[in-house]
């Protein structure tokens, strides 16, 4: 049950440390420099610009594979976050990056389709994912990424995922 009187700093610290454990548990996210911003349960993935993300040095433009990876990451973390929310809030789980077994198992990508709408500028990118449908076994997730303007999408993607069992 939700405790209406639970101290605010305790709530924030529980959610922030769980999110940070989820993200820092994946070496590739650290290497890419991907971070997550949280507002309540809403997540925004952030990909700070870095020279190693460039795919076309002449334009310059971010690598299409980087855009795909960023969108896929945003989808997986959103899905894992949504799936663990109830257990986190009730205190059934306390994810800790130092203890691999305390981290929730991540969903596995079945397929992922990226629609490239603009070439990626050499600046920060943002992404938000929406779980369209999440069943016991399969989930369908939609993701949008943008840079300077939320309405001018860099790319969008849709993917199917296999949910961890047990």
């Amino acid at each position: 049950m939700m405790d209406r009187r639970e101290p605010l700093d305790q709530i924030k610290s529980r959610r922030d440390s769980a999110l940070s454990a989820l993200v820092s548990g994946v070496p590739y996210l650290t290497w890419m420099g991907i971070r997550f911003d949280r507002r309540g349960d809403e997540l925004t993935a952030i990909l700070p610009y870095d020279e190693k993300l460039i795919g076309n040095p002449l334009l310059p433009a971010i690598h299409g594979g980087v855009t795909a990876a960023f969108l896929e990451t945003a989808a997986i973390i959103e899905l894992a976050w949504t799936a663990m929310w109830e257990d986190l809030e009730s205190g059934r789980i306390v994810p800790d990056a130092a203890v691999t077994d305390s981290l929730p198992r991540l969903p596995k990508t079945i397929d992922f389709t990226v629609d490239y709408l603009r070439s990626g500028l050499p600046r920060d990118a943002y992404a938000r994912a929406r779980v369209v449908r999440s069943g016991r076994r399969y989930a369908s997730v939609q993701v949008e990424a943008w840079q300077d303007n939320r309405a001018r999408l860099l790319a969008q993607a849709t993917g199917h995922f296999l949910m961890p069992q047990g």
Partner: peptide, 26 residues
């Protein structure tokens, strides 16, 4: 090691496969 997407199994992140596929297709 730094490309691992699942620390339990040591499998590389799907994004790495995407980047390789995208480059190869191009």
């Amino acid at each position: 090691e730094h490309l691992v997407g699942d620390p339990r199994s040591g499998v590389v992140h799907g994004g790495v496969v995407s980047a390789l596929m995208d480059t190869c297709c191009g």
